[in-house]
C-alpha cells in the first residue's frame, strides 16, 4: 500500500502537513477503490433538444443547478449550462431550442470506472459536471467535483468511526466491579426445537449482549455467526437445547448443548454441503450443509462431542488476545478462501 506525503487532488500537488498525511493517504486510496457509479448523483434533471432555453433557465433556477444533460430517450446528445443560458439571453434568443445552443461534444465518464478517472477529467477540462454513462452508453448519472469531495469525506468519517468502534472499549464500570482475576460471565439462552418463527433471536440477543459488554466489533460479528448457526442447528436438528456464552478475560466461549438425538457420523456432518435437513426445511433456505463449517471458520478452536441416541455439544472459542492482534484481518481471508 503506497502512502504518499504529497497528495495529488484535482491535478494539483498539495503539500500535506505531517499529522494529516494518513488522512490524505486514505483519501487518495479511496479515489482508486471507489467506482464512479458508487458516488454519482442518480436523480437526474434532464432536458431534450426541443426544449427552449427559457425552459432551461427556469429549470436551472428552480433546482439550483448550473447545467443539465440533454437527452433523447436514454441517449445523451449534449449538455447545456448556465453559460449557454446567459449567452442566449444576451443574444435575445430565449426561445431558441436547446439543440441549437447546447454543447454537443460531451466529455463523459463510465460508471464502472474508478473515481480517479473522473478526477483526471475534471482537472484536464475544468468542467463543472460530467455525465456518467453505463456500459451500453446510456445516461445513468451525473458527477460534480463536490460529489467526489463530499462522498470521500463522508467515507473517511465512517471509516474513522468504524476503526474507533473496533478498538477495545473499556468495560462498563459496573462490570469492571464484578470482575475478579480468572472470573467469567456466563449467559444462557434456551432454544426450542422447530421454532423457526423465533430463529435468530438468541443470536441477536447474544450479539447485543456482547456489544453492550464493550467487546470489539469484529469479535462480536464472529460470535454472532457462531451463535446463529448453533441456534439454527438446535432448531432444525435437535429436540431442543441451549446456547451458553462465557466471557472471560482471555476468550469468549459459545457452547450449544442439546438433549438429542445425537450425530451418528460427525466426520460426515462436518463435510461442507452435507446436510440431513428435510426438503421442507431446505425450501426455507436452511440446510445448506454449511452451518458447522461457518462455526469452525469463525472460531479459533472448535469441538464437537456427540453420540447417536444422546445429546450433542458444539463448542466454539474465540481468543480475545488473538482477536486484538488480528483485528479481524486474518478472519476475512480465511472466510473467503473456504468453500
Amino acid at each position: 500500500m503506497v502512502r504518499q506525503s504529497n497528495a495529488v487532488i484535482g491535478g494539483e500537488r498539495v503539500e500535506v502537513p505531517g499529522h494529516r498525511k494518513a488522512y490524505f493517504g486514505k483519501m487518495h486510496e479511496l479515489l482508486y477503490e471507489l467506482r464512479i457509479g458508487q458516488i454519482m448523483t442518480t436523480s437526474l434533471i434532464t432536458v431534450t433538444p426541443n426544449d427552449s432555453m427559457y425552459t432551461v433557465k427556469e429549470l436551472l433556477r428552480s433546482h439550483r443547478i448550473s447545467g443539465a444533460p440533454v437527452v433523447e430517450g436514454d441517449r445523451l446528445v449534449g449538455i447545456v449550462s448556465v453559460e449557454d443560458v446567459i449567452k442566449a439571453l444576451e443574444a435575445g434568443r430565449v426561445e431558441a431550442t436547446v439543440g441549437s445552443c447546447m454543447t454537443a461534444e460531451v466529455v463523459t465518464v463510465q460508471s464502472s470506472n474508478m473515481v480517479v478517472e473522473a478526477v483526471k477529467k475534471f482537472a484536464r477540462h475544468k468542467y463543472g459536471r460530467l455525465p456518467v454513462l453505463d456500459a451500453e452508453g446510456r445516461l445513468v448519472g451525473i458527477l460534480t467535483p463536490s460529489d467526489i469531495t463530499g462522498r470521500l469525506l463522508a467515507m473517511l468519517d465512517q471509516q474513522y468511526h468504524r476503526r474507533e468502534e473496533d478498538e477495545r472499549q473499556p468495560a462498563p464500570q459496573w462490570l469492571a466491579e464484578l470482575q475478579a482475576p480468572g472470573s467469567s460471565m456466563s449467559l444462557r439462552y434456551p432454544v426450542a426445537a422447530r421454532d423457526f418463527a423465533r430463529g435468530g433471536e438468541a443470536a441477536s440477543r447474544i450479539k447485543r449482549a456482547l456489544t453492550a459488554l464493550g467487546l470489539p466489533l469484529t469479535l462480536v460479528r464472529r460470535a454472532a455467526i457462531i451463535a446463529y448457526e448453533q441456534e439454527m442447528n438446535l432448531i432444525i436438528h435437535t429436540d431442543g437445547g441451549s446456547i451458553t456464552v462465557e466471557v472471560e478475560a482471555e476468550r469468549v466461549r459459545l457452547a450449544a448443548e442439546d438433549i438429542g438425538p445425537g450425530i451418528p457420523d460427525i466426520e460426515q456432518a462436518l463435510k461442507p454441503g452435507f446436510s440431513t435437513a428435510p426438503d421442507w426445511v431446505r425450501e426455507m433456505g436452511f440446510g445448506a450443509g454449511m452451518g458447522l463449517n461457518n462455526i469452525k471458520n469463525s472460531a479459533d478452536s472448535f469441538h464437537i462431542h456427540s453420540q447417536a441416541g444422546s445429546g450433542t455439544l458444539v463448542e466454539a472459542v474465540i481468543s480475545r488476545r488473538q482477536q486484538a492482534e488480528d483485528h479481524g484481518v486474518r478472519r476475512e481471508g480465511k472466510g473467503s478462501s473456504s468453500g
Partner: peptide, 28 residues
Amino acid sequence: SVVMARAKQGNLWVTVHAHPNIVAVATL
C-alpha cells in the same frame, strides 16, 4: 448459511425468501 458466511457488513441482499429469519440474517 452461505449469506451469513459471505455477505459483508453494509451489503444489500437480494433473496426470494420472505420468512422472519431473513431479518435475523440481516441483523447479524
